[in-house]
Design a binder for these strands. Structure first.
Lengths: 345, 345
DNA sequence: TGTTAGCACTCACTAGCATCGAGTGCTAAT
DNA sequence: ATTAGCACTCGATGCTAGTGAGTGCTAACA
């Protein structure tokens, strides 16, 4: 059987209607929806075909039809085809100049959640090759030093250490020079025994401090590349969709959203996504996360140059407004990247 | 009527039982609970009295009794009286040495939630009088400077700024000296026009940089004292308690937990709490937060010296295990404070 | 041959009703 | 003062009949 023009129209009508109401949609509804272009009986026949072809499902014998995963999939593919180059009245996102990327991401997640009425998720950037850009040692108290580590991409980390060795101001200055001249531009892998022993030699009596600092720096870099930060927002939006908010499912889904380790699967895709946009759509069973088998998940990868990349995701009911979500994510990607570039300038 | 020994025993038995089951408890259950010391009929009479006195409630005529807010209140007060100085097998909390307090707090919230099976909430410290301890300017790129601001209590903030004025290394050094000699030890209120104009004068041709830096520093301090950080964890634990997890209530509660601004009321109490322990117990209607009228909330204020203080809270059903929660919070307070003192050493 | 009107049929949902039983309050005996 | 016994209450459970949205099929029609 073939998916002709009329079947497509009807399928779309079913999906759109179901998106609005969340209730199975019957033949008469569709008939009215298309201005009685075809009678309900005709629609019934077509629906029967569509069901046979697997695009729609009848929850029970005497109910209307709802779209199947395959149906949604068709719909989504359709949308991505009809490239909406209409520049989409770019919403103002107000990415303010803030020092901490983290803070931007959190806000972004909140914004997305509010905007779409679905749950939003955003993963902090993973730095694939963390190069040291700059280290600064300063004294904060007599026996305490502040280590400021700046990594490629202007990621800044602070550590405070206690030293037994009290350094004079001059010695501190020298230590700074020593550290920077030896370490700048290196990744953690490149800081090998060779480099370390050379530095210790140069440090002379203060080799202990070198050890201490290196240890902290290593920890900072490691922590940052391992510890995958994921922020979620608007998780409670799922209560807006009855089909997700029965106690069992809601609880499971919310718990999953709370435990970031369960979300890794979603943000780990290095995949380019469909059409090279970096956007992925998981419908129902397609989702890699168990608890989201009744949802749809749309993820997009952002990349801020220098191998700094992360993922933004939207989690909603299968009947989510794919068109809007895709559009939102696409414009967001652009804005995020340009905003960052501007900042970087 | 008087609350005699037996009534107290029975009241406690009712509360304990209800804590376990979450179901109204009947006279026979209690009779068995006290090893048939009194018959169910006797219990019934006592229960009738207790109800009249307002300590328990009958949800409907032919059901058992559940504790009223007043009943819980009595129970909690009772517990706080019987000081559990039994040193309470101090649980290991593993507060590791981490540079960022934020990270500790997040972990703590998670730990608390896991431990108690209730929702946990923890507010980041508010700094009442932010004194500048130390400022460090470093060059990260040709036209970009890194400002590290260290506040009293070793709170560190980073900002990167773009400068038009390119400073030489020497000038940068001088600028650092200028900044620190003028600003150290001042609160933001103390940085007035007088100080600023003096600094600008000293800076000569680089007065613009002074402006830029001061602006950022001011922003950092302000942001930090205004922006109240609240972390929550284990919100989904509420699904473990049927009386809270009907859709309406669960949704409302979770939404409240997601919107930190709604939680301010809880952490804003400067009140010393009962018995000067800084611990507050809100039972049902006592809670200042609307959505928690069906819950109990226990909050504790921690103080890490220097006016740095915040709040930890536990949110659970009214039938929460007050004894455990109070004990946990109390020991946690101690541990947090000592851990911080050690770090501070 | 494709479309449509009509009709019998299905089945989730609801209201109404009887039943059940945990739990109560009261009374009378101990 | 305590307790055994009993009638009573009322939410919960289960059953039945009725309702209506929606289907599938057939036959008529353009």
């Amino acid at each position: 059987m073939e998916l002709d023009e009329r079947k497509i129209t009807i399928l779309k009508a079913i999906i759109k209607n179901y998106m609005d109401t969340g209730e199975p949609v019957g033949s008469r509804t569709i008939s009215k929806y298309v201005d009685n272009k075809w009678s309900s009986a005709t629609i019934r026949n077509e629906m029967s075909d569509l069901e046979e072809m697997g695009y729609i499902i009848q929850p029970h014998t005497s109910a209307g039809r709802i779209p199947s995963d395959k149906g949604y999939r068709f719909y989504v593919d359709q949308i991505t085809l009809e490239k909406d180059n209409e520049a989409a009245g770019v919403q103002e996102l107000m990415i303010q100049r803030i020092d901490r990327l983290e803070s931007v991401l959190k806000r972004l997640a909140k914004l997305l959640a509010n905007d779409t009425n679905y749950a939003a998720l955003i993963s902090g950037p993973r730095y694939h090759e963390n190069k040291l850009k700059f280290i600064q040692l300063s004294r904060v108290d007599e026996d305490k030093l502040l280590i400021v580590t700046v990594l490629e991409g202007n990621l800044i980390k602070n550590t405070i250490v206690h030293v037994k060795d009290i350094l004079s101001d001059d010695e501190l200055l020298n230590m700074n020079i020593l550290l920077n001249s030896n370490l700048n531009g290196l990744t953690i892998g490149e800081i090998n025994l060779d480099v370390i022993s050379r530095m210790k030699q140069q440090a002379g009596s203060h080799a202990g401090v070198v050890d201490l600092v290196l240890e902290q720096v290593a920890e900072v870099i490691r922590a940052d590349s391992e510890e995958l930060q994921i922020y979620t927002s608007g998780a409670t939006n799922i209560f807006k969709y009855p089909e997700l908010s029965d106690n069992q499912k809601a609880s499971e889904l919310l718990q999953t959203l709370e435990h970031t380790e369960l979300l890794k699967e979603l943000v780990d895709t290095d995949d380019g996504g469909e059409n090279g946009t970096g956007i992925q759509v998981y419908i129902g069973e397609e989702s890699p996360v168990q608890a989201m088998r009744d949802c749809s998940v749309v993820t997009a990868n952002y990349e801020l140059g220098e191998g700094i990349r992360g993922t933004i995701g939207i989690i909603g009911p299968k009947r989510m407004d794919y068109e809007k979500v895709l559009k939102t994510l696409r414009t967001l990607m652009v804005q995020l990247e340009t905003a960052f570039k501007k900042e970087e300038r």
